[in-house]
Design a protein around this nucleic acid. Structure first.
Lengths: 166, 166
DNA sequence: ATCTTTTAGTTCATCAATGAAATATAAACT
DNA sequence: AGTTTATATTTCATTGATGAACTAAAAGAT
């Protein structure tokens, strides 16, 4: 792999580099961005991007198919600004509606429309072969291991990132 | 974890969902974007973004500290357009120079300046504790496993992505 | 030798995401 | 009641990345 040679050479100039860990960093970053690319390609025919798709799936997964921008921000780990844009485009496409709550009139009610539900049910299943394909040559043990290690890594990242901005 | 409940609920509505694999996808995507965030935060004080940092490190790792935009695009997996922007900003900061090649006058020679080398040598080592911290509670076996599984996943993604666009 | 095709790099227009500030409503305090 | 504080959302300006169209040089074809 190309990356390894590069890190190897840097390691020769800067021997204090934690080479194994640096490689894992690059690897996780690369894998992440390749996954993003692949997902984007899969979503393109439906004219959705990752955050719009994610928001739609979250809304679909909620028991009543109904939420608020603030809650969706948390669940999809998106900024409020971006959520406004997402909601705008999804409303424009008739997949969700925006209404104002009666109890707390600051709140905005976002709910999935019947069209939205049909849309998710149609566009999601065709992605399954692709999802399966990614792990086709993974044993069950491999999958469990990867899940465990990624969760561990994600936890560490979150702790470090939170330590920085409290 | 929040994600698991969501996938669990979707799985109840759409039982054909490959739940384990979908979870791994989400996990890889999340981990990737958290890594990006963390890296961006680390680079901010140096007013660099990921692609600029990567380009700089690649150039630093090359034996002669010298390359062309085209080669850098490949090594950093960046688009040509973006590489032009990257080179512009790095030239503006005096970290690299752009000159034209004499053999092939289409080609642009990009080379790291002495300032650029000093800059990398100063800004890179302080990132090591952070890099180490990410894997602090990983055993050596964990690291090897994660490396193996991520490479495997990355390979599968590339194969699938290339199959789509030949 | 000229005409066409290919390659390298850039410019321009656009999109997605973000931070800072603005607005609106509700809750808390005095 | 009136002011302050907190919460939810939107607007605006900026950044980073990308695709399409463009320019210049080299390679290949007739």
């Amino acid at each position: 792999m190309l990356m390894d040679e590069g890190i190897e050479r840097v390691n020769q100039i800067i021997p204090s580099l934690p080479a194994m860990e640096a490689r894992l960093c690059r690897l996780a970053l690369m894998t992440g961005s390749r996954m993003e690319e692949g997902l984007a390609a899969k979503l393109k025919p439906y004219k959705l991007n990752h955050s719009e798709f994610l928001t739609l799936m979250i809304l679909y997964s909620l028991p009543d198919g109904c939420s608020t921008p603030g809650e969706l921000c948390e669940l999809a780990t998106q900024g409020a600004t971006n959520m406004t844009r997402i909601a705008n485009t999804l409303v424009k496409r008739g997949l969700i509606t925006r209404g104002s709550s009666k109890e707390d009139r600051r709140r905005v009610q976002i709910r999935m429309t019947a069209d939205g539900q049909r849309f998710v049910q149609q566009m999601f299943p065709p992605m399954f072969p692709h999802i399966d394909g990614l792990f086709a040559d993974f044993s069950e043990a491999d999958k469990r291991q990867l899940s465990r290690l990624l969760r561990k890594l994600a936890k560490n990242i979150d702790e470090i990132n939170e330590a920085r901005m409290p």
